[in-house]
Simulated scan of single mutants.
Amino acid sequence: MSAFAPLRALAAALALGLALPACATPAAPETSPELRFVTCPVYRNTDAGRKSGCWLADSPEDGLRYDVTRSPTKPDWNRAVLVEGRVSAGQADTCGGIVLEPVRVSVLAQACPRAMLPAQGYPGVRFQLPARNIRPIHEPRELPARPYAERTFGVWFDHGRDFIVYQLSDYFTHMASLYALDIDASRVEITGWSVTTPETVSGHVLVEDAMLARRRADAVANWLRMMGVPAERIVVKVAHDGSTSTLEGSDGLLSPSRRRVEVRVIP
């Protein structure tokens, strides 16, 4: 049986207007291991105003429904998703699922049926401007103090993508650019990683192209050049299947941290 058969049944039931049993949403466990699974996403159309809808994901591993709304990348109704995250401590259930935060969602190529749930009394999550939000470059900011220190910034990517993720990767790419400009860096080393060793998650084999590491590094390097960092001071490197990272922005999620670019700014 296909791993997505239960989701297809859900979509069919929704299309027919049938009553659906509630998916289990128990309280968060005392400890929160890193979860990783592939599934079809479900959208809950809450009625608490614009942008209050929720994205839910049912895990094939434990049969539980998780709230993945807080991921920087939102699911695509038509595609399967790779979910990576940890159960949040103390988050209220406003969507009908165990809240994952931090959480990352990567949209995969596999097709999925569309599935939408009504509000069913869940208020959803009202939009709030994230803390990782790029500010205009002309705004006053505190400049680094001398002596300047070498710093390394992490830039994070979805599985299989070289797209700079909005309000996550773009924020840290921007911060690396500003730091390099503020200290007039003598050298900026940009190293891209991709995960080229196949991994099996929920019965699906996940692997990245070796060239993806270079494309990720080039995307970040192009951003720095456009910001005004001199091209002759930028060095681009690649690596594959490297170690995990705990740089700022990884949010303690080890598996997603392998899909990254590191920007080493040298005074």
Rank of each mutant, 00 (worst) to 15 (best):
L100F: 03
V235W: 08
P29N: 06
A15W: 03
Y66R: 04
A80C: 08
A109P: 00
S257V: 06
A149C: 07
F163T: 14
Y166I: 01
A89R: 15
L206S: 07
V125M: 08
L181A: 02
V207R: 15
Y43V: 09
V165G: 06
V229R: 15
K237N: 14
A213P: 13
S2T: 11
A92S: 13
G121P: 09
A213M: 13
M175D: 02
R187T: 02
F127P: 05
A213C: 10
I98A: 02
M175F: 00
E84N: 14
G17K: 04
S88D: 05
R161T: 14
H240K: 07
L35H: 01
P113G: 05
F163H: 14
R70Q: 12
A145P: 01
R70M: 10
L7M: 13
M211C: 02
Q120S: 12
A48V: 01
R258W: 00
A213F: 06
M226G: 07
L224E: 08
A24W: 05
C23F: 09
L254K: 14
T197W: 02
P113M: 08
R65G: 01
A176N: 05
A22E: 14
P130T: 04
T200N: 11
R233H: 08
L178G: 04
E199Q: 15
R44E: 04
L82D: 05
V38P: 10
A89W: 08
T200L: 07
D218T: 12
H240M: 06
T31N: 08
V235A: 13
N222Q: 14
R126N: 11
M211A: 14
T69S: 15
A115H: 01
A111W: 00
M116Y: 05
R233N: 08
Q167G: 02
A28Y: 07
L181I: 10
R233W: 01
A15V: 09
Y43M: 11
N45M: 09
V220H: 02
S88V: 02
L181D: 01
V38A: 05
E30D: 12
D67S: 03
S186W: 04
R151S: 02
V105E: 08
L247W: 10
L16T: 06
G154L: 11
R126L: 13
P267H: 02
S202Q: 11
T246H: 12
P29H: 04
A22V: 12
Q110P: 00
S52V: 04
I134Y: 04
L10R: 15
W223I: 00
P144Y: 09
L64M: 08
Q91D: 13
R65M: 01
V201A: 06
V238T: 15
R260V: 00
V105K: 12
R187M: 03
R259Y: 09
D158G: 03
N222Y: 00
V238C: 12
Q167S: 14
M227A: 15
Y66G: 02
V165F: 09
S257Q: 11
L82P: 13
L100A: 03
T200E: 15
A5S: 12
G252D: 11
R104C: 10
A27F: 02
S59R: 04
V81I: 15
H159L: 14
A185Y: 13
H159I: 01
S52R: 05
A11F: 07
P140T: 00
L64D: 02
